[in-house]
Design a protein around this nucleic acid. Structure first.
Lengths: 238, 238
DNA sequence: CCTAACGAAATGGGATACAAATGTTAGAAT
DNA sequence: ATTCTAACATTTGTATCCCATTTCGTTAGG
């Protein structure tokens, strides 16, 4: 059994493609490429030390995920979302997370309830330390627990897509100081409603959390749009 | 204006890759490959007369769309959805179409209202003729009109994904005789509520329509699962 | 007769090189 | 200074090669 587990790890590492997808995706999410930046195939190939063939497969997949856009005969760029699209993303996210919250109450097992509460306490602990590094990590974990309990694999997948797009927006709109405490409180409302097995309350709390995130994003985006397409100049290599 | 439109058409033809994606996708939706069928790269290359490199890019994209699954070191197969996943798909679709219906009432312009009604009358006309060919086409048009009026591009994209998966299910679950009339009636309810500018009514009608489709799919799928994974044997080349 | 080990063929995973089409840019001529 | 053109950069698509893994048939041994 132990041997098999080891093999499993080795096996899951296999497929260089998935590794590259993951690497490029996180590189973009971390803001190492700015939205609108061109991803010149040869350059990116060298950076990641993979062949062009493989990279193009990767780019195809990231295009389908909405992380890059491939402009015909101009090549791939990091996807850029307008303010309108951003608000659309948050609107959709609100609907989906509302659904997730409701379904969690209706379907989650005891152990899933426990996982969610554990994730929440870990999140609160992390938010108190200003240890800024793993905030996203614990939040991801929280959402993983929330969506897992909804028992709808398609919903999980769609939320993965949506959160990816939100991450892209976050790359442009820096996170706000003081937002963490508010965010923790909102997530706390979700957990509280869920612990009371109040489906509608959970749904409402989820929606409110997204709305609040959307409001901040909208403010930052509109502020950023005042100084618009200069991005190209500022994102160039110094 | 006319000239520009022509140019647009020409431009959209570009990119062999997109053509191949489209071709493979519709081939699968039309049931020319059964779910679970292996898509041997070299064979499909010859069928479509493209290089293996290009085909693999296409397969990457279709994998991200959920139309094919690429199993490590075994290659691509036509995606196969379990009954659980199918019900998850319909559940999600209900939520999204409910959202679309509500937003349409809140946001659609007069001309979008007109487009929807036009699409509906065309659909009813088509459903009356047993001319079976273009039922999917007019229904697609109807949904395009519905989602366009919701003014949320992300919702449109997600619904495209979902409808793709539903198409895959339809490939396995043949459509039911007599379903057309019921379907038309349900869509009529949506249009009626929208024309009364009744957002909640529209949302409810959308949800009901999906539920009814889901019920049929569930019945057919469970019936099919009684004779399970023999599929492989029956779909092999004689 | 059954089973396990071995090996060959089929297939996917990945890299490299090359040709053609297209977009971009810099420079020349007016 | 503007426009035309030629050179260059980059994408798009193909052909071919090599290696790893799976699969399946065969054979040897119990």
């Amino acid at each position: 059994m132990d041997k098999q587990a080891d093999l499993h790890v080795v096996r899951s590492i296999s497929s260089l493609k998935k590794q590259v997808v993951e690497a490029l995706r996180t590189a973009i999410f971390e803001g190492r490429f700015a939205p609108g930046d061109r991803l010149i195939e040869r350059e990116v190939c060298e950076m990641l030390d993979v062949s062009r063939t493989l990279l193009r497969e990767v780019l195809s997949q990231l295009e389908a995920e909405g992380i890059v856009q491939i402009i015909p005969h101009r090549g791939p760029i990091v996807a850029v979302y307008s303010a309108d699209e951003a608000s659309a993303i948050y609107e959709l996210r609100a609907t989906l997370e509302e659904m997730a919250g409701r379904l969690f109450v209706e379907r989650a097992t005891e152990s899933e309830h426990k996982s969610l509460n554990d994730a929440y306490t870990e999140l609160r602990r992390s938010y108190k330390n200003k240890n800024n590094t793993d905030h996203l990590l614990v939040k991801t974990k929280f959402y993983a627990a929330l969506t897992a309990g909804a028992h709808n694999p398609m919903l999980v997948e769609m939320l993965r897509l949506i959160h990816g797009r939100v991450s892209m927006l976050r790359a442009t709109t820096l996170s706000q100081p003081g937002r963490l405490a508010v965010s923790a409180a909102e997530l706390g409302e979700i957990v509280r409603a869920i612990n009371k097995r109040d489906a509608e309350g959970a749904a409402r709390a989820c929606r409110l959390h997204v709305r609040s995130a959307a409001a901040i994003a909208a403010k930052l985006l509109s502020a950023q749009q005042a100084v618009p397409a200069k991005a190209k100049a500022t994102t160039g290599k110094p």
